[in-house]
């Protein structure tokens, strides 16, 4: 990093007060409580990746995105757009959308239940505000986001398009079609983040399908790549700010975000076991004892 950039970073660091950071961390704690409670309540869902990405979601929705949660519009003109490509981490998405004001937090109690708008994987089908496309079958979100980003340019809309992808999801070939397209066509109004937790449903990434250097791969495909720690609020804010600075310069921007699956609940960390399984009653009590209730449980 050159001197100028590190100066910028210092400036960014000081621009967010400790009070701001603490406020976001307190929201994140509540979101983590929601996640384990939602998954526990119907004995299904994906807590691991949700907990790992909580800090990113909170930073994005409460600090970075320009968005209108009170009047959700599918077209999102003159708003930043976010697409969750790895739809299975829906618990964190739903909790953050609810706390952002897209719908009432009480609706989180319906997660994965019959007649709910909070389907196992996010969808537009039931008209849940905040969702712009269905995701769950992996590998499709970047393509959709690219379409939306291209249309923002056509519409003279200078807001940005953000995406999140699982690291295991990058094993899907379609992702690389989209990665190649974005760089080749200079789609520089998009910031794609990879949740690099090193684990997927069947085990460690390196055991299932070793992928080598993700950074080198994205760079080789022509993206401007940043690396960050996704479980430190201040660092995430700085990285998202830096990523935003790098848009509009002819290259799409990628953030390889290292996270810990299960972050915040000790027994869910360091393993892939909690990718897609729910805590029992006792485990729920244990998890909640580690997460401060800051905004009130739904």
């Amino acid at each position: 990093m050159n001197k100028f950039l590190s100066m910028l970073e210092t400036l960014e660091n000081t621009s967010k007060t400790m009070a701001d950071i603490t406020k976001l961390e307190r929201i994140a704690s509540q979101v983590r409580r929601d996640i384990v409670r939602m998954v526990h309540a119907n004995n299904s869902g994906h807590p691991g990746g949700s907990l790992g990405c909580t800090d990113f979601f909170v930073a994005l929705y409460f600090e970075v995105l320009k968005h209108n949660s009170a009047n959700f519009s599918m077209d999102g003109k003159n708003e930043d757009l976010f697409f969750l490509s790895n739809g299975h981490i829906s618990p964190v998405f739903y909790s953050v959308l609810a706390h952002s004001g897209y719908f009432d937090v009480s609706e989180l109690a319906t997660f994965r239940k019959l007649n709910s708008r909070l389907q196992g994987h996010p969808t537009t089908h039931e008209g849940l505000p905040g969702i712009r496309v269905a995701s769950g079958s992996l590998g499709q979100g970047l393509s959709v986001a690219l379409g939306a980003a291209q249309v923002k340019k056509l519409n003279g809309d200078s807001q940005l398009v953000y995406t999140l992808h699982g690291d295991g999801e990058l094993q899907e070939g379609q992702v690389w079609e989209a990665i190649m397209y974005a760089a080749g066509n200079k789609v520089d109004n998009i910031i794609a983040t990879v949740d690099f937790n090193g684990r997927q449903i069947d085990g460690d990434l390196d055991d299932v399908l070793p992928m080598g250097s993700l950074k080198a791969k994205w760079e080789a495909f022509g993206w401007d790549v940043l690396e960050t720690n996704g479980n430190d609020m201040k660092t995430i804010l700085n990285t998202l700010s830096e990523a935003k600075n790098r848009t509009g310069k002819g290259k799409p921007v990628c953030i390889i975000m290292t996270t810990e699956m299960g972050q915040g609940v000790d027994y869910m960390m360091g393993t892939h076991k909690w990718h897609g399984s729910a805590p029992n009653d006792e485990q729920l009590v244990n998890a909640l004892s580690q997460l401060e209730e800051t905004l009130g449980d739904y």
Binding site: G76, V133, G141, A148, Q174, E177
Partner: peptide
């Protein structure tokens, strides 16, 4: 400006088309 050549990449084409509807195209 409204013609998008995606190459030999049909999956990306369909996904991009879905995304282009967001914003009214």
């Amino acid at each position: 400006d409204r013609f998008f050549q995606v190459g030999i990449a049909e999956a990306n084409m369909i996904g991009m088309a879905a995304g282009m509807t967001i914003g009214g195209k």
